[in-house]
């Protein structure tokens, strides 16, 4: 009789513990997601990051002249890169040009053998079918047209931070060393700026982005 009662008590305890565990699990599942979502209230400006990388062996004060592309390359989504000159592209070219001039470099025509060349690329991987993301810090090698700068015979040196990735839109500025191209038998990318995040193709952010990238690259001056 006593034994029976004891068994009944044990079963009843087990049942309550079991029910308690179910309630606890339900509570944990429903409340575990009560975290604050970082992306929920993020503005376009807050979502943007400006990444700059440089060749640490380059002496930026040794260059005097630069030239810049007359249109912006648009790459991505598996397409062959094409060139474009939208209002955004004009503003981007103008902003980079004046930032370089304010750092003491002289703008020359590309036929005048500039020390530095600047490539601009808009990257659109929003509809790419392949997805590979080694990390936010890596750059995307801007579209490279060797014929544009007149060094079709040389190999190109891409620093290790260049990796293809992303499912997004981005903007890239590449600074190429033409001064040492003949001697080194390669065209080196000595500085790169990448703009990633929402709205980087919106011209309202151009000044912010260019100023940000140059401000954080104090070494980039004549």
């Amino acid at each position: 009789m006593k034994k029976g009662k004891k068994n009944f008590t044990i079963v009843s305890v087990r049942r309550k513990v079991f029910l308690g565990a179910i309630v606890a699990a339900a509570v944990i599942l429903s409340l575990g997601s009560c975290r604050k979502d970082p992306l929920n209230d993020m503005t376009e400006e807050e979502s943007q990051i400006y990444i700059t990388n440089r060749d640490t062996t380059a002496d930026f004060s040794s260059y005097t002249t630069f030239s810049i592309v007359d249109s912006v390359a648009v790459a991505g989504n598996g397409d062959t890169a094409r060139r474009a000159l939208t209002d955004y592209d004009r503003q981007l070219i103008a902003a980079v040009k004046s930032a370089m001039q304010s750092r003491g470099y002289t703008l020359v025509d590309k036929s005048a053998k500039p020390n530095l060349a600047i490539n601009l690329t808009r990257i659109d991987e929003t509809f790419a079918s392949t997805y590979y993301d080694p990390g936010y810090w890596s750059g995307w090698g801007g579209y490279w047209d060797p014929f544009y700068w007149g060094y079709p015979g040389l190999g190109y040196y891409w620093p290790s931070y260049y990796t293809v990735y992303t499912r997004e839109r981005a903007v890239s500025i590449d600074l190429l060393d033409l001064q040492h191209a003949e001697a080194d038998k390669e065209v080196k990318v000595v500085w790169n700026a990448m703009f990633r995040g929402a709205g980087v193709w919106n011209s309202g952010y151009i000044n912010n982005m260019i100023n940000g990238a140059f401000n954080q690259s104090a070494y980039l001056k004549k």
Partner: peptide
């Protein structure tokens, strides 16, 4: 469960061969 959350103003963070503003 405890959720810690803090948003910083934009700042520049050094990396191996450059910087990131975020």
């Amino acid at each position: 469960f405890q959720d810690f959350y803090y948003r910083t103003p934009r700042a520049v963070y050094p990396t191996k061969s450059g910087d990131i503003s975020a």
